[in-house]
Amino acid sequence: MLNQDHCRPAKLIVCILGRGAAQSIVEQLFDENILLTETLVIRNQNALVAEEAWQEMDMLKVIVEPQFADHVFELIYNLSAIELEEGHYMYQHNVPWVTHFELPKLPKEGVPIKAIESGKVEVEGMTLEQLQTLRIRSKKG
């Protein structure tokens, strides 16, 4: 069973903004306690612009810890100039549970493919167990 060590409440912030604009916002959110970001390309229609106009736009999804949500919302609001661009919008809602999302700890210089394949070669800064995990993941991929 999962417990609170594995899961915690969070907030999901979604922002619909101009095509190609999501990437620069993600880069500026790097130090803002973000748990996860995801970008989709969508088509968007807005009655305020034109009746049948569909526009290709970015959908940026950000999962953030509740105590930082309002700050991140305001930050994205300002970075994306939501209030200035027709068709742009954003919203925030609760997410009851999210799991931890951690990347494997890897040495800066990378891991040699030989080490992953064999699972035996020692890599500085990595335990054999971590190497085995990477090996399983690479086989699944």
Partner: peptide, 12 residues
């Protein structure tokens, strides 16, 4: 339907 806590958009 998902109830939203808050939202923002362009307002004419």
């Amino acid at each position: 339907v998902t109830p939203l806590e808050k939202a923002a958009t362009y307002i004419p």
